[in-house]
């Protein structure tokens, strides 16, 4: 089977997965307690106003019919609109999702830039203080919840040292100056990146240790090639195979992780919109945003599979 037929086979599975995602999301919304109309209108709402809004959001129909109507609207690209703010969910996705993608992308990039050299160096200096230090950091990085870490970062770098602001993403543009624009990203990106650095550094280190024991490395050394060249030109290529395959998934998880981070750092991304929607039981927004994030995860998983098949030809025939 060639790469294209593998890709097509994975592609046709997507509608089925998306269908199950819609069913799960819809079912979860229906079993979640709470009346969004009552929340929005408050206890003094007139019965006519409540009835009109219920009809507008199909809440006066049977549950199966509500699902059918939702999917029908989805098929025409209509994710509905917020019960609370009347804002179109597609507009919300268009304004909020890019913010989350940028944060997650920056965190992934920073993670790669730090984790790869750190992992390579730790493997190169196996059992040295560097190695122990990195392993200690990865243990801490994987153990501390992102939320807690974010609070510590705020306390230390924003409140005590005053190096960076706590929030401000979305507030400033490039015209306010490079530093003013970029500084609000520092803490959220750092909070998100620490866990990923720890994860990736461990993968890189383990992979590098394996590669360094390979025959071709010994041959290269026997030929008198320097360590730096061996690491960069020969070992790193092989080490990056597992890293490349997990990048897409790591990136997707970073988007998921931004939910708590966005709340803390007041970031106008999809996560903060989702939290507000959950608090207000704004079901169309929850359904729409969850679906978009779900489809994004599916797409990233597909990308990971394809990358894996591209970099390791043995996989595509599986």
């Amino acid at each position: 089977m060639g790469i294209w037929s593998y890709f097509l086979r994975r592609l046709v599975q997507i509608p089925l997965v998306v269908f199950f995602v819609t069913v799960i999301i819809f079912a979860l919304m229906k079993v979640t307690p709470g009346d969004p109309i009552a929340i929005m209108l408050g206890p003094y709402a007139t019965p006519e106003t409540m009835a009109a809004l219920q009809a507008e959001f199909y809440l006066d129909r049977s549950i199966p019919l509500q699902y059918v109507l939702w999917v029908r609207d989805l098929m025409s690209g209509d994710l509905g609109h917020s019960i609370r703010s009347q804002e179109l969910v597609t507009d919300l996705v268009a304004t909020r999702f890019p913010v989350s993608i940028v944060i997650a992308g920056m965190a992934t990039l920073v993670s790669l830039l730090i984790a790869i050299p750190a992992g390579v160096y730790a493997a190169y200096r196996r059992n040295s203080p560097w190695d122990y230090g990195l392993m200690g950091f990865t243990t801490v990085g994987l153990s501390v919840p992102t939320f807690t870490l974010a609070l510590v970062l705020i306390l230390f770098f924003a409140l005590k040292l005053r190096w960076v602001p706590i929030s401000g993403i979305g507030l400033r543009t490039w015209s306010d100056g490079f530093a003013a624009f970029l500084l609000p990203y520092v803490l959220p990106v750092a909070a998100l990146a620490v866990t990923t650095i720890a994860e990736l550094a461990r993968i890189v280190r383990a992979s590098m240790l394996e590669v360094l024991e390979q025959e071709f490395i010994r041959v290269a050394r026997a030929q008198g090639i320097g360590d730096a060249l061996i690491l960069v030109a020969h070992a790193l290529k092989n080490v990056l195979i597992p890293v490349i395959t997990v990048i897409a998934v790591v990136f997707a998880f970073q988007v998921g992780n931004t939910i708590t981070i966005e709340y803390l750092f007041s970031i106008p991304g999809v996560g903060s919109a989702l939290i507000a929607a959950v608090i207000n039981r704004d079901f169309p927004v929850i359904q729409g945003l969850t679906l978009v994030v779900g489809v994004f995860f599916i797409a990233m998983n597909l990308l990971a599979d394809i990358l894996y098949a591209v970099v390791d030809p043995r996989i595509r025939y599986g």
Binding site: I154, L159, R162, P165, I166, S167, G168, L171, S266, S272
Partner: peptide, 18 residues
């Protein structure tokens, strides 16, 4: 008007001058 939902972050933002 800045939207800052968490009370501890609001307080920190006041203390940092934001």
């Amino acid at each position: 008007y800045r939207v800052i939902e968490d009370p501890s972050v609001r307080l920190s933002s006041l203390l940092t001058g934001e």
